[in-house]
Each structure stands twice: as structure tokens, then as C-alpha cells.
């Protein structure tokens, strides 16, 4: 009986170690749990879904304030969690001369940001998706208490120096903030490491009023039923 209990305990320990290893050890190739949620579709990898939009094609002014050199500080290192292992030679990663890497599929989606032909809630949806992709790669949201810090994280201030949005995107103002179609900076509200609420002040350009726009829960693309305007 005692022998049986000993064997059972040994198996339990082994199972525990395996579970913790899967959870905490850096992924060699990819994290299966994360990959399932973040695996780019074939269309995304090939770039076939890229679209051209008047905003993206519009003449651009001088480049806004670029983020500082990456600080090389990734807070997740304390938890033994490293960024998702990526094949940076894949088509969705475009090497830039300054050492940064543009994630083209997300950048292409963000070209639609503030497109006047689409519903404003879709802007929030696009940003939410971009933040979700950042989180899937770096295992946590951008460390950001301010809009500016979100922009810095999305334009290269991260361990891979990866850009998710073109720093010259017209939605980034001269203060390096992402603004909505009414030129008011979005409010990024870090609730937790995996939940970043994003709010637009809406047409009246005042936060806390009835026309504020936000998504209650993170959603995936193609699920328009999952978001609504905040009438609070």
C-alpha cells in the first residue's frame, strides 16, 4: 500500500513539474496554448488580406516623435516568462533599417484605424486586436499608464523592437499619442496584464459622457455582436 502511495506521489510530482514547465518555461518554438489563439491564418501570413485605404495612402506629414531606443526592460523576466519564440523571417515580419521589425499584418489592420467609412467602434476593435497580438507575443500588455507609452510599446519599445503600427500613422499625433477620429487621444486603461480597456471620448470629445465608445470585453475580429457603444 505504502509503495503504491509512493508511486502515486511520484507521478503527481512529475505531473506537477510538467504542468509548471509548460506554464513557466520559455517556449522553444511556440507555446501551444498561445499558438492556438494567436496562430496567424494563412491569409494573414501571406498578406493577402492587406487592403489599401485612403487614410493609409494619404500624404504623410513629418514623422511624429519616435520612441526612444528600446530600454531592454521586460518585466516578465521576473516570472521566468519570455516572449513567444518567433520565426522573424516569416513574411509578416518586415525588417527595417533601424533594427526594428514591422509586423505587417497588424500594421495593415491598423491602417484602417479612424477610417471614416467604418463605424467608430471598429477603431476600438482594431486597437484591441493589436494589443491582443502584442500580448500574445510578449505575454502581457504594454507597460503603460499613458497613451504615449502604449504608442512607444507598439512602435518598437519592446524586447523584439517590433512595430505593430507605423510610427508615421496619421492617428499618432505630435505628442506621440494615438488619437481617435475626432483627434482626441484614446484612453488606455490597464486593468490587468491581460486586459486593456480602450475608450474613445466620442463625438463630443469629452470623456465620461454618453457618446463615449468602448468595448466591454476583448473580442476577435469578425464578431461584431461582441461589442457595443458604452451608453453609461
Amino acid at each position: 500500500m505504502k509503495k503504491f502511495i509512493f508511486i502515486a506521489l511520484a507521478l503527481l510530482i512529475a505531473a506537477e513539474v510538467i504542468v509548471l514547465s509548460v506554464r513557466f518555461l520559455p517556449s522553444k518554438k511556440s507555446d501551444p496554448a498561445t499558438t492556438q489563439a494567436s496562430k496567424p491564418t494563412e491569409e494573414e501570413v501571406s498578406g493577402a488580406s492587406r487592403v489599401s485605404h485612403p487614410i493609409a495612402a494619404a500624404p504623410r506629414g513629418p514623422a511624429p516623435n519616435l520612441p526612444p531606443e528600446t530600454k531592454g526592460v521586460i518585466r516578465s523576466e521576473f516570472f521566468g516568462v519570455e516572449p513567444l519564440a518567433l520565426d522573424l523571417s516569416a513574411p509578416v515580419f518586415e525588417q527595417r533599417g533601424d533594427g526594428r521589425i514591422l509586423k505587417t499584418d497588424v500594421a495593415d489592420q491598423l491602417k484602417e484605424l479612424n477610417n471614416p467609412e467604418q463605424d467608430p467602434v471598429e477603431d476600438i476593435q482594431i486597437l484591441t486586436s493589436a494589443i491582443a497580438t502584442y500580448r500574445q507575443i510578449f505575454r502581457e500588455n504594454p507597460i503603460a499608464g499613458e497613451n504615449r507609452e502604449v504608442v512607444e510599446a507598439l512602435t518598437g519599445n519592446n524586447p523584439y523592437r517590433m512595430m505593430f503600427i507605423d510610427p508615421a500613422h496619421p492617428a499618432i499625433n505630435s505628442s506621440n499619442e494615438l488619437v481617435d477620429r475626432w483627434k482626441v487621444p484614446y484612453e488606455f486603461h490597464p486593468v490587468s496584464r491581460d486586459n486593456m480597456e480602450i475608450r474613445s471620448a466620442g463625438l463630443d470629445r469629452q470623456f465620461g459622457t454618453g457618446d463615449d465608445i468602448m468595448i466591454e470585453e476583448p473580442v476577435q475580429f469578425g464578431d461584431p455582436e461582441s461589442f457595443e457603444e458604452n451608453d453609461q
Partner: peptide, 13 residues
């Protein structure tokens, strides 16, 4: 910018 900081500064939870 040079010392380790608490993870997820500014995040509520």
C-alpha cells in the same frame, strides 16, 4: 530605466 521595476506598473489587478 536601469533597474528592475515591478511587473505591470499602472495595472490595477
Amino acid at each position: 530605466n536601469s533597474v528592475p521595476l515591478p511587473p505591470q506598473l499602472f495595472s490595477h489587478s
